Structure formats: C-alpha cells, structure tokens
Amino acid sequence: MKAKVAVFGTLRFPAENIEKVLPHLKALVSSTYANDGCIAYDVAEDPFDKGLIRFSELWPSRESLENHLKASHIEPWRAQARKYGLTEREFNSYDLSSDAVAV
C-alpha cells in the first residue's frame, strides 16, 4: 500500500508520569494498527529528552487519517493524556506527492 500522507508529531508529559502514560500509549498504537488502516504508526520516547514522545505515521489517504482522528479509541487516549499531565502537543501532516526513495 502506497503512503499518501505522513504525520510527524510530539507530545510532552512530566518526566515522572511517563511510565504511567506508556500502557495507554501502547493501547492507542495497538488499536490504531488493528482498526484504522495506517501503514505505519511509530511512537517512541526521545532518549535525550525525558517525557517527550515522538510520533511518525504513514497513511494511505487523508480520509483514513481523518477517520483515525474520530475513531472510538482516540478520546479515551486523550483523556488519559490529560490525566497524566500532557503539557505540549504538536502534529503536522504532509501530503506525499512521490514514491519514497531510500537515502
């Protein structure tokens, strides 16, 4: 499946809450892969900036991304993120116009 949309983003939590956030983040990632039609949905804590979570996502269409943002597992995740002190959120999406090339 060819990716048409890429998303890159970050979330920031208080460093002391990150271990509490991870199980909820894992549930989000699992549900997204199982239900939302993503090509890739990768999440990792920045090893040099405790509490910063980085996202990279590939979607087959803008519509599939929009559907993901309305999926039933998104609001429970957002509630947990607020509960554990989400302090920053930044996401950007990009339409991909050509095939990816290995660099």
Rank of each mutant, 00 (worst) to 15 (best):
L96P: 08
D36N: 13
S93L: 09
K70V: 01
E57T: 07
A40D: 14
E63I: 04
A71P: 00
E16W: 00
Y94I: 13
S64C: 08
L11G: 00
V29K: 10
S56T: 15
C38R: 01
A34I: 01
R62Q: 15
V5M: 11
D36H: 08
V7G: 09
N67A: 14
H24L: 03
K50G: 00
H68I: 01
L96I: 15
K4R: 15
F91T: 10
G9Y: 12
K26G: 02
K70C: 03
V5R: 07
A34G: 04
D36T: 06
L22K: 15
L58F: 10
D36G: 06
S98F: 10
P47E: 12
A44T: 11
N35I: 00
A15P: 09
N67H: 11
I39S: 03
F13K: 06
K26M: 02
K26E: 11
C38I: 05
W77P: 09
V21N: 07
A71V: 02
A15R: 12
P76H: 05
T87C: 09
V7D: 04
I39Q: 03
R62I: 07
F13V: 05
D42S: 11
E75T: 12
S97G: 14
N67V: 00
A27T: 11
Y84T: 04
T32F: 04
K26W: 01
D49T: 13
E63W: 02
K50T: 11
E88R: 12
L52E: 13
S98R: 14
F8S: 14
D42N: 13
S31F: 01
C38S: 12
A40W: 01
S31M: 02
V29F: 02
R89V: 13
S61W: 07
Y33V: 03
W77C: 07
K70D: 04
A71Q: 03
E66I: 08
T10D: 05
G85V: 08
G85N: 10
L52A: 06
A27V: 10
F91V: 12
K70N: 10
A44Q: 11
E88T: 07
Y94D: 07
S97Q: 11
G9E: 12
A3N: 10
S98A: 15
Y84D: 05
E45T: 08
I18S: 06
F8A: 14
H73F: 04
T32S: 08
F91P: 06
L28K: 09
Y84Q: 06
S30F: 08
G51C: 05
Y41V: 07
L11V: 05
H73R: 04
F13P: 08
A34T: 05
V7I: 15
A79W: 01
S72D: 12
K4H: 14
F8M: 14
V29N: 01
K83G: 00
Y33A: 01
T10V: 13
S98T: 14
I53Y: 06
A34C: 01
A6V: 12
W77G: 07
D49A: 13
P76D: 04
P76K: 03
I74G: 03
L65C: 02
